[in-house]
């Protein structure tokens, strides 16, 4: 493997920023939310943290209508 990380930084920095934005916004909403239509708080937190694009999308679509 001869991948130069510095070369990839222009890709990685914005990518990480956007994924974190998605994750953090979903997490703050999960923490504030009182009642859940499906699953519970802990399950949603795990889903959002583990699946990095699909998790927040699932949360926003299923819990926030």
């Amino acid at each position: 493997m001869i991948i130069n990380v510095r070369e990839l930084l222009p890709f990685l920095i914005p990518l990480i920023i956007f994924q974190l934005l998605l994750m953090i916004s979903a997490l703050t909403m999960i923490v504030k939310q009182r009642r859940f239509k499906y699953l519970n708080r802990v399950a949603w937190i795990i889903i959002v943290v583990v699946f990095n694009i699909v998790g927040p999308v699932l949360y926003f679509v299923m819990e926030r209508k």
Partner: peptide, 28 residues
């Protein structure tokens, strides 16, 4: 308010970043 615009925007920009990145890393 229901974050749909933001959600779509973030997902599509991520796709815009990931695609050239995958192409760039493909030889490795």
């Amino acid at each position: 308010r229901n974050f749909k615009l933001f959600l779509l925007l973030a997902v599509f920009i991520i796709i815009g970043i990931i695609s050239p990145l995958t192409a760039y890393l493909m030889p490795d």
